[in-house]
Every structure is written in structure tokens, then in C-alpha cells.
């Protein structure tokens, strides 16, 4: 049984905050019947077979499911780095199919924050410079961008490491830099692919607390792909995927029975 309580969740979140901004109406992410295949002929793989998913404003949605079920493909479509085949999908009311590649790239730069599983930090940039990249992409000067990135690094517990190169940081610290990079330009949607899989339980929890504490606001949303049952409790909603479809959306306690 699929639960569709997105709007209610957004309202609940809004009420719990003392933010003066009016709450946005509608859904942060709205997908219906999304399909996506890779390859052709004998090699054709149906990665998504008609995904329905709604994410409300202010919601932290986790995507779980067996390996190969299409989680990465789905967040790639949602983040606008992969074209869907069929179905509808809009993010903050924008349907990527209606805008040009270039506009989509620029839109991503403004609205999406990424935390990649493999971090993908540029090895020759310092932690602060890495975290400042989204601001520089948006045209901010290097010095002020790095200054802002240093503030964000401090918030994720990396003060004093801003001049370190990625190779001088532990896995957990690199992940924090990646998270700082996803936060620095205050994007409205953050997508994370297995952000804690490389981390021990303690670090994983502190990363999740960070993401939840710093990234969430009533006009934003967060999607996290994970295998890691230890962090399920941080979710507002958990969507379970199987073989290219979302089979169930539930609150975390419902999932752990």
C-alpha cells in the first residue's frame, strides 16, 4: 500500500518552525509514470518502469531497495542530470523537458546540491575551494566564495581543515567537505547517493544530523539514497523501490515494523 501524505508532512514541518516566510504550495518533487532504459537490443535494461513519487517541501525522503533496482537512476532523473524516457516529472514546478540543456545546467547550479557517493572532490583544490565550487560556478569571486565555504566547513565541524587537500583528510572528513559543497549555495533540493556508506556508524549519524539540521527548511527538500538501516530514523518518509518501481512510501517506524 502506497502512502501519499507529502503535503501533510510539509505542513507539519512548517508548523514546527518559526520561519516567517510563507510556505510554498505544491510539491517539491512530483514524478508520475517515469520510465528510463539503458542500452538497446539484447542489452536493453529497464532501470525505471513507471515510478510514482512525491516529495513535499521540507521533507527528507530516503530511497531504499536492493542494488540495481534503479535508485541512482531515479535521483539522476530528479536532479536533472539524466533524461527520462516517459512519464511526468517536475521539480519545484519545473519540467526539465521544457527547457534547454544549457538552461537546465544553469538551473541545476542554482537549485540542486549534490553529495556523490565517491565524493568527487577535486584533488588539487583545498577543502574550502572544493566547497566553494558551486558559488564560483554561479559567478561569485573566488575570495568571497572561499570565505563563505570556510563558514560552512566550520558548521560541518571542519574548522581548521579548510586549507587541507582531500588527500590529507579522512573519508569522513572528505564526506563533510562534499556535504559543505552541497550546502554552500543554499540549494532548494539536495540529492545524496549513499552518503554514509563509507562511514562508520558514529560518523554516519553525525553526517545525517548535519544534513537534517543544516539543509532542511520549509522551502527545501532532501533525497537520500541509502542501504544503511542505521540512518532510517532520520527520514520523514522512506520510499522502497524494487525492480524499477516505487512499491511503498512509509514513515520510518512503519518500515521497521
Amino acid at each position: 500500500m502506497r502512502e501519499m501524505e507529502g503535503k501533510d508532512m510539509a505542513t507539519a514541518t512548517k508548523n514546527s518552525r518559526s520561519d516567517a516566510k510563507p510556505a510554498p504550495t505544491g510539491l517539491a518533487v512530483h514524478c508520475r509514470g517515469v520510465t528510463k532504459h539503458y542500452g538497446a537490443g539484447d542489452n536493453k535494461v529497464m532501470a525505471l518502469r513507471g515510478v510514482d513519487l512525491e516529495i513535499a517541501y521540507g521533507q527528507l525522503m530516503m530511497l531504499v531497495g536492493p542494488s540495481g533496482c534503479g535508485k541512482t537512476t531515479l535521483i539522476s532523473v530528479i536532479a536533472g542530470i539524466l533524461d527520462r524516457d516517459e512519464g511526468e516529472c517536475s521539480v519545484f514546478g519545473v519540467d526539465y523537458e521544457t527547457i534547454s540543456q544549457r538552461q537546465r545546467t544553469l538551473w541545476r547550479g542554482q537549485n540542486i546540491g549534490f553529495v556523490f557517493q565517491a565524493f568527487n572532490l577535486l584533488p588539487t583544490l583545498t577543502a574550502a575551494e572544493n566547497a566553494a565550487v558551486p558559488l564560483m560556478i554561479l559567478g561569485e569571486g573566488r575570495h568571497s566564495a572561499v570565505k563563505k565555504a570556510e563558514d560552512v566547513l566550520a558548521r560541518v565541524g571542519l574548522e581548521g581543515r579548510s586549507k587541507s587537500l582531500p588527500s590529507q583528510l579522512s573519508g569522513g572528513q572528505q564526506q563533510r567537505v562534499a556535504i559543505a559543497r552541497a550546502l554552500v549555495h543554499q540549494p532548494r533540493l539536495i540529492v545524496c547517493d549513499e552518503p554514509t556508506s563509507a562511514l562508520d556508524e558514529h560518523t554516519g549519524h553525525s553526517v545525517m544530523r548535519l544534513l537534517k539540521g543544516v539543509a532542511m527548511a520549509e522551502d527545501r527538500a532532501l533525497v537520500i539514497v541509502t542501504h544503511d538501516a542505521r540512518i532510517f530514523s532520520f527520514a520523514d518518509r522512506i520510499a522502497t523501490m524494487n525492480d524499477g518501481v516505487v512499491t511503498r512510501v512509509a514513515a520510518p517506524d512503519a518500515l521497521t515494523h
Binding site: 542530470i81 545546467t105 544553469l106 547550479g109 549534490f114 556523490f116 565517491a118 565550487v133 558551486p134 559543497r181
Partner: peptide, 16 residues
């Protein structure tokens, strides 16, 4: 290449 890919995902246009 993977870093160019990351930059692209993060919003760097092809012209850039």
C-alpha cells in the same frame, strides 16, 4: 573526466 563530470552536474555549462 570524472571531475569535469562533477563540475557539469554542479551547473557548469558546456561553454564554460
Amino acid at each position: 573526466l570524472r571531475y569535469y563530470g562533477a563540475l557539469k552536474a554542479l551547473g557548469t555549462t558546456n561553454a564554460r
